[in-house]
Design a protein around this nucleic acid. Structure first.
Length: 837
RNA sequence: GCCCUCGUGGUGAAAUUGGUAGACACAAAGGACUUAAAAUCCUUGCCCUUUUGGGAGUGCCAGUUCGAGUCUGGCCGAGGGCACCA
């Protein structure tokens, strides 16, 4: 038998796929989208997995008659281009476009059903021009603001660092101690949509619960109230926010953030300034925060308790945040752990106001459970929820506070002091005002002549770029030299795909209204919060700004795939080794190829360059073929879980596909026409049942199960080759099986279909209910133990099966001479005899 | 610390609403074919029994049920999210 050349058929079919799009004009629309890649250089196995899953979905929907949009583009702005530029002396634009070219070719090698006519790249001015337009729209609708905020400032690089660029409080490149610096920055007012972003999660039935929960926690809605405390013997007040107003009678101190307004009273106090400095130092890393001791500074001030004749001391404390609530709290040590820690340290009162039997002082554990309110005057004997309501009513009556809902979600800071990003279309006038540029001046293009080697913001350093004219007044103005966070680029690209060449506005409204929402979005779990939240925000904001667009949610169904892992290897000196540097010995140990030294095998971890446990998809495709790589990446684990890449695994996939080709060849040349209707019917039934199972498993994204079913089908067909099965029946069933395989191994399946003379490969087999298998396997249990499994006709009755069992079942010996108390009969599944012994 | 998810062979995993545990694949051992190797194919996989057969068994302990991998409670372990959010 002739061995198949996977490369030959891949080349042949990729040419055909390039012109064969997934549009069925009369079908229902289906927008299939995978998260677009950052063009970092080459594709990695994570991309292979992501885009293979997407391709299966897109092709499956197309074969089922849907009109499928399946685009691809490039998330091509970002810091790595600037870093690479410094390293290789290559302009970010050139570096990026070179990578795009390489990666596009690699993606094509996978045989994906992408419509490349829709390709977009976010660093293309035809894309970011419209992003600037959207920015101006947002600005005009009050969704953009300018605020001062703290940033990580690298004093050597003279630039702002992202959190992940700060390592142990130092800049990742300069190693300088990072400072907290207040900078004026642009923000999208995402918090205006807090409630909608939270509420609309409920309608996202097609999203993983986990992702919805993460978003919910991130938005962090909480109910409570504000309370104003009078500072004793003064007309000043302190406003606090609390979610536990029911514990007001347990209040024993007030704690202020050290950025709270009241600090003005203490700026001359050296001790306070030293305390504040100490606190600011621990502010940099999460770990430091978590382990930091509670620190306080006693102001010697007191406030009056609103309901008791009692004075409460006021402290500055390092654990109170300025940017949440009012920057001030009241402490109730008995029922909040942080408050208790603080109270223990500074010897403050601990008053129990919720009934419980714990010894709080001894255990140093605050009681946060439910219970009856005690020691609380008019709140006594109420439960917590009722007490909250009642005390807030009292507070509102006394006019010292009101109900309040707070969100953890903060506005989205979008200013970046970088070159390789979308310029922010704002200008500064001489009188200090800031205005957007006019839309007809767009795009504000990035200059090509840029010096990335000196420190600071490259656009700011550019000699002329920032100088401009305010068009309506003719006066001189200065451009904003910050660029947009690259998350902005990816917050609307899915809209642009609907009309990627539309030039007069960001998108053609008719097309957006037709294709949106994305029916299936597929990508990594690492984007569970930010990218998805920002995209949801954009969709809502755009729909609010433009009455012709109605998208409440951009992504109807979301699938988050797991990572691709690989074993890790180290030599004796703890240096990481690439898989291709090692070889396996007969005793299952490994050694280095070059010097035969021992290699230590570590756990499988997600592929990363730093651990050298990567496998190059292009090499794998060249060695085993695209279909084998696609087949393996889907076969071993459920797609939402991590999968471990293994070379033997892809070899096995390759062998199986080769065998499958051989089987098709055998079927094509087989001639057996001894008609046996019974046999043919039975075979039809088996294959039809498999079609049904495969269809169901694809719908549920259980591709590992789908592939297991293909292995079973192979066996069934192979076992039938030497029977008197009619060759035409065999062939027509094989054609159906190949159609099922098209989404998984498009090149091989289409080659086989062509080989078998199928001239309509673009449809999905229809399951004929009459053809399904008519038998079921039926378990016979005695006292709950399975004693036999018999094959019987479907829907057999209890009486019939009982008769059968007494005649021919192995279980009958257990029933002999025993009294049956009762039987449990479950149709098509099981019968259980309960005996009295 | 709070919140969430998950624990099934040597490995990755199947088991639709509680109803045959381990499908399918990898690895391993044994065998067939072959002068030999490669390739291919077959068999095996815990305990007792020569076989037929019987028993145990889904992290641990209890419970509900005719019947639990699946449901409930407690414990142990692994992974993920948030990080002093009042």
């Amino acid at each position: 038998m002739e061995r198949i050349s996977f490369h030959t058929i891949e080349k042949k079919w990729q040419k055909i796929f390039a012109n064969e799009k997934l549009y069925n004009k009369n079908g229902k629309k289906f927008y299939c989208l995978e998260m677009f890649p950052y063009p970092s250089g080459k594709i990695h196995m994570g991309h292979v997995r992501n885009y293979t899953i997407g391709d299966v979905v897109a092709r499956y929907k197309f074969l089922n008659g849907f009109n499928v949009l399946h685009p691809m583009g490039w998330d091509s702005f970002g810091l790595p281009a600037e870093n690479a530029s410094k390293l290789n002396n290559l302009h970010p634009k050139e570096w990026t476009n070179k990578n795009i070219k390489t990666m596009k070719n690699q993606l094509k090698m996978l045989g994906l059903s992408i419509d490349w006519d829709l390709e977009i790249s976010t660093c293309d001015e035809n894309y970011y021009k419209h992003q600037q337009e959207l920015f101006i729209d947002f600005y005009n609708h009050g969704l953009v603001s300018r605020k001062e905020t703290y940033v990580n400032w690298d004093p050597v690089e003279k630039t702002v660092l992202a959190n992940e660029q700060v390592i142990n409080g130092r800049g990742w490149r300069s190693n300088a101690v990072v400072e907290r610096k207040k900078l004026s920055q642009w923000f999208f007012n995402i918090t205006k949509f807090s409630d909608e972003l939270l509420k609309d999660l409920e309608e996202l039935d097609g999203w993983p619960e986990k992702v919805k929960l993460m978003q919910k926690n991130w938005i962090g809605k909480s109910f409570g109230c504000e309370i104003e405390f009078n500072i004793s013997d003064s007309d000043k007040k302190i406003k606090v926010f609390t979610t536990r107003p029911d514990t007001i009678f347990g209040a024993s101190f007030i704690a202020l953030s050290n950025d709270h307004n009241l600090k003005e009273l203490f700026i001359a106090d050296e001790k306070f300034m030293a305390f504040k400095k100490e606190c600011d130092k621990t502010g940099t890393t999460e770990e430091a925060l978590a382990n930091a001791d509670k620190l306080g500074f006693n102001t010697k001030l007191f406030v009056d308790h609103p309901f008791l004749k009692k004075k409460i001391p006021v402290f500055f404390a390092n654990f109170v945040l300025m940017d949440y609530g009012t920057g001030a709290i009241f402490g109730c040590p008995a029922h909040d752990q942080r408050d208790l820690d603080f109270a223990t340290k500074y010897n403050l009162e601990v008053i129990k106001v919720v009934q419980n039997n714990d010894d709080i002082l001894k255990s140093k554990k605050a009681y946060v459970g439910d219970g009856k309110i005690i020691n609380s005057d008019f709140l006594n004997n109420l439960n917590i929820e009722d007490a909250k309501e009642k005390v807030i009513d009292e507070i509102e009556k006394k006019n010292i506070g009101k109900r309040k809902t707070l969100f953890r979600l903060k506005d989205w800071g979008i200013s970046r002091q970088r070159y390789w990003g979308c310029p922010i279309p704002m200008i500064y006038l001489n009188d200090g005002s800031v205005v957007p540029v006019q839309k007809d001046e767009l795009p504000i293009k990035l200059p090509d002549d840029i010096d990335l080697n000196s420190s600071g913001n490259p656009l700011k350093n550019h000699p002329t770029w920032k100088n401009t004219i305010h068009k309506s007044s003719g006066k001189k103005a200065i451009r904003e030299t910050d660029t947009l966070d690259t998350f902005v680029d990816s917050s609307w690209y899915f809209l642009r795909f609907c009309s990627p060449n539309h030039s007069v506005s960001p998108f053609n409204e008719t097309k957006v209204n037709y294709w949106m929402p994305v029916d299936q979005y597929i990508g990594g779990i690492e984007h569970a919060i930010l990218h998805l939240l920002y995209s949801r925000f954009f969709s809502k904001a755009i729909s609010k700004n433009n009455n012709n667009i109605k998208i409440t949610e951009p992504f109807k169904n979301l699938f988050t795939q797991g990572m691709v892992c690989h074993e890790t290897y180290k030599d004796e000196n703890n240096n990481w080794l690439y898989p291709e540097e090692i070889e396996k010995l007969n005793n299952n140990e490994y050694q280095k190829k070059n010097d035969k030294r021992k290699v230590f095998v570590g756990a499988a971890e997600s592929m990363s360059k730093s651990k050298k446990n990567t496998v190059d998809p292009e090499i794998m495709i060249k060695q085993y073929g695209a279909d084998s790589v696609r087949w393996f990446i889907l076969s071993d684990s459920p797609p939402e879980k991590d999968v471990q890449w293994s070379d033997v695994g892809v070899v096995a996939a390759n062998k199986f596909l080769q065998k499958f080709w051989n089987l098709v060849q055998t079927i094509a040349s087989r001639k057996e026409n001894n008609f046996n209707d019974e046999h043919d019917k039975k075979f039809n039934g088996i294959i039809n049942t498999y079609i049904q199972k495969i269809d169901a498993s694809i719908k549920q994204f259980r591709f590992n199960v789908t592939i297991a079913l293909f292995y079973e089908i192979y066996k069934v067909i192979n076992d039938n080759l030497n029977t008197n099965l009619n060759s035409e029946v065999l062939k027509s069933n094989m054609i159906n099986v190949l159609k099922l395989m098209t989404p998984f191994t498009p090149h091989l399946a289409r080659e086989c279909l062509e080989f078998l003379g199928c001239n309509n490969p673009h449809n999905w087999p229809i399951i004929n209910a009459n053809n399904l298998i008519n038998n079921v396997k039926f378990a016979v249990q005695v006292n709950g133990k399975t004693r036999d499994v018999i094959t019987v006709k479907k829907d057999i009755s209890e009486i019939e099966i009982k008769e059968l069992i007494l005649i021919e079942s192995k279980a009958k010996k257990y029933l002999k001479n025993k009294k049956t108390l009762k039987t449990i009969f479950v149709k098509n599944k099981i019968i259980n005899y309960i005996l009295n012994d």
